[in-house]
Every structure is written in structure tokens, then in C-alpha cells.
Design a protein around this nucleic acid. Structure first.
Lengths: 139, 139
DNA sequence: AGCCGGGCTGGACTGTGTCTAATGCAGCCC
DNA sequence: GGGCTGCATTAGACACAGTCCAGCCCGGCT
């Protein structure tokens, strides 16, 4: 009845539902992302997963994150030229990026209306739209 | 009365207008960006500038691009996790990014209406908003 | 047992971008 | 002219995220 335990069981199901073989490492990585609802970089995820003992290699972390993205379990967020953030929230939504601190927060897309977008070029399909509002502390 | 010449003279003025000391290298880099109205990476810019003889170093290219961005002469576009693109168009506008080919094209913001954005957090100022529409060729 | 295949691993590697220490060069004052 | 100051440039070393590779582990199957 431990909630962390339950959570890990749910994650196992989630992974399977996305066609991902739920290994120990993959569950830990998914747990890092889904337990805290934050935007983490590969680096941060590796640090969290290996907090106690080093048991997951860099290659596995990157492989797993790329796999999760390919299977649409998580999303990449590209705002910082030096590293990619991973977002466990796959609902359509936008981002607020604090340029100063590097903090990234979600903006619900529910209330946002975007109109007047041009037609896509012939033979192109939209994969998605990223909206990033860059903010910084007022002086 | 050579148009390239004229262009370089205009660039000299533009640089000065932005508080940038117009050196030979800076003019060449600005010319690479402004003559073709494209989105180029630092790498591509260096290749263009050094097409004939190598006369501008990597450090200078990066220093100059960062200077241009700081002085609001050009804009960074962050869509590709592996490299930054530089955009000579500083008018507000959005981007269409072809995930397959890596091609980046402008979308005029004139017709686009965005409403319902949330209030910014206390003490924060917006620096700008990036809108990136990711597209790929239809199968 | 022996094979097969997916997953994991350390370590080497790649490619952007930054840093550093040295050099060049222009203006300036004496 | 000679010496000083300060910015711009440079080559090369470096930092770092991310990828690649070759080998190992391990569970399932025959």
C-alpha cells in the first residue's frame, strides 16, 4: 500500500500501454519524470536515478529518453541551446521559460486561442506547435 | 556603384547604429546573414565567410554572433537541439520548421492572433515569444 | 545445454560552443 | 617617435551534451 510502490506499478502499465518493455531502469527513469511533474534534462534525470548507487549508465538514460519520446510517452522541449528538457506532460500546452534561472513552467493551452495561421506548404503535415514565452525578472 | 559595395556600406551604418564597432570580420559576418535572408548556423556562417581564404576564426564568429544577439541586431532561433540558428529578421514573426530536412522558414506574424495568454508571474517581464510549427512531409 | 535477441554498460568518440593567453592594431598623450 | 591603453582577433585547448560501438548479461526457447 506504499504509494511509491503503487506508482511504480502504474508506471509499468503505462510503459506497456505504450509498447515499451518495462525494465527496472526504464521504470526508474519514468518514475523520476512522472513523480515530480517537472521538466528535467537528461543530466538531472541521471542524477536522480543514481542518487543512491550508480546503477544506470548514461547510454541507457539517453536511449530510454529517446525511446520514450519516440513512443510519445513524453515530449522534448527545446528552449535551451545547451540541453534538451523532457516533459512528462503530453497534453497540448505551452511553456514559460525564465531566461535568467532556466526554470520552465507549463501554460495550459485551454484558454489560448491562436488564429490566422497560414496554410502549410503543399505536402506537409503539422507535427505540433511549440509556443515558448521567454520571461525574465523585471529590473 | 557595385551593389555589394553599397550593401557593405549600409551594413557599416547598421552596425554603428546598433553600437557595434564595424570591423572587417563583423561586416563580413553581417553580410553573410543579411545578403541571403536565411537562417544560418554558426558553422554555415563560418563556411560562407571563409569561402575564399580562411581569414576569420571560429572564436570570432561565435563572439560576433553573440554580440549581434546582445545588441539586438539578429535573433537566435532555438529549434534544433544540436545547434543554434541565427535570424537576421528581428521583426516579430514565427517559424516553420521542417523536422525532416531541418529547413527553417519564416511565418509572418501579421495575420496571427493569439489571445487568452495567462498573466505573467509577479515581477516578470516578457522578453519575447517563440512560436515554432514543426512540420514534416506527408507520407 | 546451447542459442538468440533485447537490454545494459563503459568508454571512446563527435560536434557545438567557450575559454585562455598571446598577438595585432588603433588612438592617444607626452 | 615612443610608450601606453584598450579593443579585436586568433589558434588551440577545453567543456559538455549526446551518440556510437563492441561486449556482456540474462531470460526465453528448443
Amino acid at each position: 500500500m506504499d504509494s511509491r510502490h503503487t506508482s511504480r506499478e502504474k508506471l509499468t502499465d503505462t510503459l506497456r500501454a505504450h509498447g515499451i518493455n518495462p525494465t527496472h531502469q526504464r521504470i526508474e527513469i519514468a518514475h523520476a519524470l512522472f513523480s515530480r511533474q517537472e521538466h528535467l534534462s537528461a543530466d538531472q534525470i541521471m542524477a536522480i536515478v543514481n542518487e543512491r548507487h550508480c546503477e544506470t549508465s548514461k547510454a541507457t538514460v539517453y536511449n530510454t529518453l529517446n525511446l520514450f519520446v519516440a513512443k510519445a510517452l513524453i515530449r522534448e522541449v527545446i528552449v535551451d541551446p545547451t540541453r534538451v528538457f523532457y516533459d512528462p506532460n503530453t497534453e497540448p500546452h505551452y511553456h514559460l521559460y525564465d531566461v535568467q534561472s532556466g526554470r520552465l513552467t507549463d501554460v495550459s493551452s485551454a484558454d489560448v486561442r491562436i488564429s490566422g495561421l497560414p496554410d502549410l506548404p503543399e505536402g506537409m503535415v503539422a507535427e505540433g506547435m511549440d509556443v515558448i514565452i521567454r520571461v525574465r525578472p523585471a529590473i
